[in-house]
Design a protein around this nucleic acid. Structure first.
Lengths: 236, 236
DNA sequence: CGTAGGATTGAGGCTCTTCAAACGCGGTGG
DNA sequence: CCACCGCGTTTGAAGAGCCTCAATCCTACG
C-alpha cells in the first residue's frame, strides 16, 4: 500500500518549475503545501479508478504513471503517460464528474495529493490559475484531435513510429545521465498506447530494429533514428 | 461569400438559452452583442481553416457545421458536428495557437462572430465565464478519451452504431416537427466521422437496414431501434 | 433532358488480429 | 549456487475485417 514516510515542501520540490503550480504566488503555493499529503505508489498500484469520484488532485513528483480507459472487452487503451510535474485528476474534479480513466503507477512513484477543497479554493481565488488551466485544457484538446485523426487514419506501423517518438520525450525527462533515452514499457502497454495487438507491436519493433531505426535490450527500447521515424509516422 | 444582411441581438437569439453565453450577466451579453457581427455561410463554405490564426470566436445561430482535421493523405477526420448554440474556435484563441481544425458549413448557416479582443476581455472580467469554459473543456476532454478508446478498440460496425446514435441527438435538435429524426450527411462525411472508407459505411448501413434498425430515404437516415444500436455499439 | 456528384455493388488483396506454442529471463526457494 | 517457475516476449500460421479500385446506378438540379 501507499505509505507517507516522507514529505516534500512545494517550495523545495525538484519539479516545481515544470509543474502546473509554477505560476502561483508564494501565498497560494504555501497554502497548497500546508494542506497536501505525500505518498509513494509502487509499480502497479492504482492512484484512482475509472468511475470513482475525485477527492483531490495528484501532482507527480517522481516516476511515471499510465492513464487508461478499459474498453468493453477489458482491453486497456492508454490515453497518456504522465511524468513528474504533471497534474492528474483535475479535469474530473472541475467538471464534477467521476473519473473517466484509471491512473496506475508504471514504476515506483512519489506523488503529492491536494484535497479537493483546497484546490478548488485556489481555483476560485486565483483567476490566473484558472486561466492557466483553461489554456492547458484547450491545448490538450487540440492534441487529442490530433491523436484521434492519427488513430483513425494512420496504419499501425505509422502510429508505432509516432508513439516511440512521443515516448522518447517522456522518458527523456529522467535524463540523469545524458546517454540515449531508454523506453521501458511492456510490449502490451506499448500496444495499448498504439491501439493494436501485442504481437503486432513485437513484429513491427523487429522490423524497425532490422532497419536500424531502434535498438532493443530486453524490453528496453532506444530510438536511434528519430528523423526516420518522423518520416515513417508522416509527421509534418 | 458570406453576407451580413441580418443582425441578431444576443438578447433576442433563439439559442441564447443553450449557448455558452447563457450564464453571462446582461452587461457582458450586451457588450458582446454590441461588438459582434453576424453572417451567413452557405453549404460548403469554410468559417476557418486549420493552421490559420484565430481572430475571434463563432457562435452558431442556425445550421450545422463540421469540424475536421485533414490527414496526411488529404482524408478528412471529422472531430465533431456543431449545432446551434455551440461556440466554435475559442480553444485555439485561448491556447494562443493556430486552429488545429477546419470548420465548414454542412448546410446554409447563420453565425455570429465575436472579435478576439471583446471575447478575451469578457474572459478576463468574468471569472464565472472563465470557470464555465474550463468546466466545459474538462468535460470535453473526458469525451475525447472515450472517442479515442472507441476508435482504438471497437470494430467499424460498432463505431457506426455509436455514430448514428450521436447524430440522432445532433440532428434531433432541429425537431421542428416532432417526427422521427433524419440524419442528413453524405456517406463520405459519415465515413469520416467513423474513421473508415465510404464503401464500408454503405455496406454496413445496408446491413442495419436489413436488420430493421434504420430506414433510409436517399441519403437521409432514420434510426428506428436506438436500443439495438446501443447494444451493437457496446455502450454500457 | 442531360449532367455531375454521390450512392451502390463487386472483386481482390493486404493489413492486422487471433490462437497456439515455444522461448527467454529474472526471481525464488531448496 | 543452481534448478525451477512464471511472466513477458517471440514466432508461426490461418483467417477475418477492411480497404482499394473500378464499374454502374441513381438522383437532384440546372
Amino acid at each position: 500500500m501507499k505509505s507517507s514516510k516522507f514529505f516534500i515542501e512545494c517550495s523545495d520540490c525538484q519539479v516545481k518549475g515544470r509543474s502546473k503550480f509554477a505560476g502561483l504566488c508564494e501565498k497560494d503555493l504555501d497554502s497548497i503545501s500546508y494542506n497536501k499529503s505525500c505518498a509513494e505508489y509502487k509499480k502497479g498500484q492504482v492512484l484512482f479508478h475509472e468511475g470513482t469520484r475525485p477527492l483531490g488532485v495528484f501532482c507527480i513528483n517522481h516516476g511515471k504513471i499510465k492513464v487508461y480507459k478499459v474498453g468493453f472487452d477489458g482491453k486497456e487503451q492508454i490515453i497518456q503517460i504522465s511524468k513528474p510535474g504533471d497534474l492528474l485528476g483535475y479535469k474530473a474534479m472541475i467538471s464534477e464528474e467521476t473519473y473517466p480513466v484509471t491512473a496506475e503507477a508504471l514504476e515506483d512513484t512519489k506523488v503529492c495529493f491536494v484535497p479537493k477543497g483546497d484546490f478548488l479554493s485556489i481555483l476560485d481565488e486565483a483567476p490566473s490559475f484558472n486561466n492557466m488551466l483553461l489554456r492547458e485544457a484547450c491545448k490538450e484538446l487540440g492534441i487529442m484531435a490530433d491523436s484521434l485523426t492519427s488513430l483513425a487514419q494512420k496504419s499501425v506501423r505509422e502510429r508505432l513510429a509516432v508513439a516511440l517518438l512521443m515516448l522518447k520525450d517522456t522518458y527523456g525527462v529522467d535524463g540523469i545521465d545524458d546517454g540515449p533515452v531508454e523506453i521501458n514499457l511492456t510490449r502490451e502497454d506499448l500496444a495499448n498506447i498504439v491501439g493494436t495487438a501485442t504481437e503486432t507491436v513485437i513484429r513491427l519493433l523487429h522490423d524497425f530494429k532490422q532497419e536500424k531505426l531502434i535498438e532493443t535490450k530486453g524490453r528496453k527500447i532506444r530510438v536511434l533514428e528519430p528523423k526516420q521515424l518522423i518520416k515513417i509516422g508522416q509527421l509534418y
